[in-house]
Design a protein around this nucleic acid. Structure first.
Lengths: 349, 349
DNA sequence: TCGCTTGATGTAACCGGTTACATCGCGCAC
DNA sequence: GTGCGCGATGTAACCGGTTACATCAAGCGA
């Protein structure tokens, strides 16, 4: 067990106390250059005794490497971001990197300029900003700042980028709904201007168009509450909707709870599907059919990719991930139905 | 809109380009000292043209302030930590502070020594380490590092500290269960060595002792899975348990899903209660009775408190927060029962 | 014995800011 | 006309590390 630091000794204090030069101390403690083993041990002893801990900031300045990467997120609400962060943290921890958090709170303008203050603070950034065009983002970055873009919109030539194939995911989901007999479909969108939301909408539209079915669209904002409101609207209108595809799981869950609260059986009368596959999706009952991203893995990959960019070996390619359709109870086809709730719970338990 | 940085100009580059000294540039850009307004504007222009962005690390070194605080968490799984982090981020953002994340991943030893590397990286730490004695934590901190302890165990004289009154919360919860007619109580604990878990157990024991009722105890580990396993064990034993109090919401939810999956009506046959009041608790159906902490607010307060400590004006007192009992559907007393699931959903919708 | 190589150690410049202190120039009072 | 004070600006030290380069001593062959 290491000694408790008694003071904030500097490397020069250690050098003085050990009767050597700062260079020797630095070398001894970093195990880098050739140094007499005996001297090294002596220096280590003195350092321990003084409770010397290197000043990370100073080291950072001279190495021009901070060992820290910045994570830029639009928000922290809900399980999506916490899973993403968890995956990032895992990967960063393995690589000995620290994570600095930056949440944009929806304020695109302020958030984007805030990125500049990252110069000299982080070695690179993983940016998820679905409401900001990639071009604008990049324009505001300190020159030469390594970046990995997550799911942004617009072109970003020469930049590493990870994207979800939202279109394919949404299309597969809606095709599943249609295949299981649903005909009157509603899509609850994400917030306006959000790329992911727009692509999911497009995917849903494509699937409906191919089947020559209409698609009703209600605007949401990715919050559980907006999903519930969409459900309310449908309850008021009462025009025989038999499937709801929400652009993310939280809205799907909001809608589901609202419908069930009003006695509408899910999935018997209305099937519900989401997008993301947050942990909650399989926990809830009926469990939620969704387009599954391995969110934590996605985050981890982003960090791994950034490490590549920082190291200078990255092909700057665009990597697409295709979500996989996970069919659960919330979209069981009405033909195979028996009784309401309790039976449903059993299937995935 | 700010200019896009074209290079990584330093303050000396700006000084040279503007034909002034670095001191003037520093003064002009920080708006600190007296400087001729005209000169200031000229310097600002040059800086903008060069796309100059101050190097945070360098500034940090000379100011010996990083504007960053470290957040040390035991884990990131589940909604508890994401809510906590969200509250911290909000408060930090208001105060213009950055957040650096450190997750201990349960490895107490490695985690504790890792704290030392925070020297020169952060201005202070908010530490939540329910499995590490406060004394040991503090012993490994760089000297003079401002700290706010969240819910640790052991004494920490002279340190700012925020704690939950786990004992009172658990006691209130169990008293509620007893008051609503439950007699055969089970407590599912958190992981061994976790202070919060131990205090909640003690609170539950106290309530039972006062009512002269026995309390069966099953060990869990705060994960949803362990809650489910506890439920399984009870199902196997089949000895008429009528209430489960889990030491956190995730385990309560795990147990609830497991029981319902097996056809055991909740709350009719078995009442279930958790602890924390994560967002999911009121989302799930039946909604979960729990001891509510305003998690985000708790996190925000911790950051605010740390800011005080850093500023040097903090009384280093221990602040206790008492969770409030939130009664929801999962513990409705069996007397008022009508039909199973659907009715239950309606109450809090 | 001397010169040269080689390995260990020390000296000082540097990373990029901030700021105490020195300097400079100007206006005003004598 | 001089001296003084004062506000604006410049110089250089400093924050705490790393490391290129200089230095020095020891070892070895001629």
């Amino acid at each position: 067990m290491a000694e408790a630091p008694k003071s904030n000794a500097t490397i020069r204090d250690v050098a003085r106390a050990a009767g050597v030069s700062v260079a020797s101390v630095s070398r001894a403690l970093n195990g880098l250059a050739t140094i007499r083993p005996e001297l090294r041990r002596q220096i280590e002893d003195v350092a321990a005794q003084l409770g010397y801990v290197p000043h990370a900031g100073a080291r950072h300045l001279s190495l021009s490497r901070s060992g820290t990467i910045g994570v830029v997120l639009p928000d922290l609400h809900g399980e999506f971001y916490s899973e993403l962060l968890r995956g990032m943290d895992n990967e960063a921890s393995v690589r000995g990197l620290h994570l600095m958090l930056m949440v944009m709170h929806g304020e695109a303008a302020r958030g984007v300029t805030a990125l500049q203050t990252m110069r000299g603070r982080v070695d690179g950034l993983v940016v998820m900003a679905p409401h900001v065009p990639a071009g604008e983002l990049l324009a505001h970055l300190p020159a030469g700042m390594p970046v990995v873009l997550l799911n942004g919109s617009g072109a970003a030539p020469g930049r590493a980028r990870l994207r979800l194939d939202n279109h394919a995911g949404a299309q597969a989901l809606v095709e599943h709904l249609i295949a299981s007999g649903r005909r009157a479909l509603v899509h609850v969108t994400g917030p306006e201007g959000n790329v992911d939301a727009e692509e999911r909408l497009a995917g849903a539209r494509a699937a409906c168009a191919r089947a020559a079915l209409p698609l009703r669209v209600i605007r949401g904002d990715f919050t559980q509450g907006s999903g519930a409101r969409a459900a309310e609207q449908l309850l008021r209108d009462g025009d025989g909707v038999d499937a709801i595809f929400a652009a993310n799981d939280m809205m799907a869950i909001g809608a589901m709870m609202r419908l069930r609260g009003d006695g509408v059986p899910v999935p018997e009368q209305v099937a519900i599907a989401g997008f993301d596959d947050i942990p909650l999706a399989q926990l809830i009952s009926p469990s939620l059919t969704t387009a599954s991203i391995d969110i934590a893995d996605f985050g981890g990959s982003a960090v791994a990719r950034l490490a590549q960019v920082i190291a200078g070996n990255d092909d700057a390619a665009l990597e697409q991930r295709r979500p996989v359709l996970v069919v659960r109870q919330s979209t069981r086809s009405n033909s195979s139905t028996t009784t309401p709730a309790d039976r449903a719970d059993r299937e995935e338990a």
